[in-house]
Computed example of a mutant assay.
Amino acid sequence: MSNHTIAVYGASGFQGVLVLTELARRGLTAVLVGRDADKLKAAAARAGTPDAELRVAAVDDHSALVAAFQDVDAVINCAGPFTPTGDRVVAAAIAAGTHYVDTCGEQPFLRHVYETYPAAAESAGVTVVPAATDGGIPGDLLAHLLGDHLGPLAELTSVHRFGGETAMSRGSLRSMLGIAEAMTDGGVAYVDKAWRSGPFAPLAPVPLPGAPEPVALAPFPLQEPISVPRHLAVRTVRGAVEESTRALFATPLTDETIATLPVGPDAGQRGAGTWTIVLDAVAEDGRRARGVVSGPDTYGTTAWTAVAAAQRLARGTAPAGVLAPAQAFDPADFLSALAPFGVRWAIEDR
């Protein structure tokens, strides 16, 4: 297997170090990119790769970013919040002719990338796959498999659930702070073959795995309403979380408070956490099926997923452009590749 070289922007952050560790585990060469050489050096040491190459480039220095992304096979952008600055990293990767993925969970940025960069990416021969995370890739891939199973869909509802410890990194909290309005009004859903902004009507309670009673849901700005309609014949795609989860996110912490918190959950908290995506699909002919994909450690799974996506793009087999995960990767193959990390998935008729 080729020893691809992957640049990690925001390498000194909490998620960045996890990505660096996964690159090292796979025997891939990492190039650390960020604005502070000392922090990059410390991050390389924490990831067990003290001799890794460091390249200094501030997010507002386009020329430096382009130079930093030269001569690498792919870029993984871990520098959130993405909505204010992620544009610059995407543009620099395309200008450098380098494939791009990120660890973004911010729906407004995800939609912006899909709508803004297809022509530039195609012209540069670059593949861009945003939201290469535990939430962004497994749900999109499983949705495609549900479409294969049922045929054209009338409706798809995605519910993201979290179990165990709920500790979050500073970067995740700052991302939530930046999209507080979207979290309050439900963000964007795909309704009757058009993207529409909330607020949306409440969703009916539904039975969920492990829950003794139907669970109250709230509309939420997830990735599937943005990505899935780009590759699946479907009329409506909605995102939701449990109402209790939305309530936790309803009043984001201030940036001043976030700065006083630990940089991220410790190993014990990460190990105790779980994530589950439940996809309920209704076919145009009325048949129903449910897909469920789940795994441990949301930050660890995001690192595994982002690296796996970048490694596949580095092989140069995906088409150029801004692609949903199911357009860039074989869905069943990618999901199966996550099995060693505890990710499980299944589809059942209802």
Rank of each mutant, 00 (worst) to 15 (best):
Y114H: 15
I277M: 11
V215N: 03
E155D: 14
V234M: 03
A267C: 04
M1F: 10
G342M: 07
V72C: 13
Q107W: 04
A233Q: 13
H231I: 07
L203N: 07
T21R: 14
L28E: 04
V292K: 05
V292Y: 09
L142A: 07
D349F: 07
A95T: 11
E122Y: 01
S169M: 09
L40Y: 06
P221Q: 06
A58D: 14
A44R: 02
M176H: 02
L232I: 14
G286K: 11
T5H: 05
Y114L: 12
P207R: 13
D102E: 09
A306M: 07
R238M: 12
T251Y: 01
L232K: 02
D185K: 06
E243C: 01
R288F: 09
V8G: 00
D87S: 13
P50M: 09
L248C: 04
A95Y: 01
R270Y: 02
G125D: 11
W275H: 12
R88K: 14
H160D: 13
A346H: 13
A45G: 11
V293Y: 03
G86A: 07
V234Y: 00
D51K: 13
T116G: 04
P118V: 03
D38W: 02
A259N: 08
L153I: 09
L313H: 04
T251M: 08
L23D: 04
D192N: 14
D51S: 14
T274G: 08
L18N: 10
R161A: 10
A306G: 02
A320R: 04
A11W: 00
S172L: 12
P108T: 06
V188H: 05
I137A: 03
L18F: 07
A240W: 03
S158V: 15
L20R: 01
S227K: 03
A267E: 15
Q223V: 14
Y299S: 03
S158K: 00
S244W: 10
T49F: 00
V90P: 04
P340D: 03
A64G: 08
S169G: 11
P331K: 05
L23C: 06
A11F: 07
G187K: 02
T85S: 14
D285S: 10
H62F: 12
G178L: 08
H4V: 10
S158A: 15
V17S: 01
G125L: 07
A47T: 10
R312I: 02
E213Y: 05
T29P: 00
A93N: 02
S244Y: 06
D51Q: 15
M183V: 12
D280R: 13
G13N: 12
V263N: 13
A310M: 08
A180C: 09
V343E: 02
D349V: 11
L177N: 12
I179E: 10
Y299G: 02
D330S: 14
K39Q: 14
Q107Y: 06
P130W: 00
R111M: 12
W345G: 03
L145V: 09
A52K: 05
P229N: 08
A93C: 10
G48Q: 05
G264P: 00
W195C: 01
A346M: 08
G178F: 03
V101A: 06
L253I: 02
A182P: 04
V206L: 11
R35E: 07
V66S: 04
I137M: 06
T302A: 05
T302H: 01
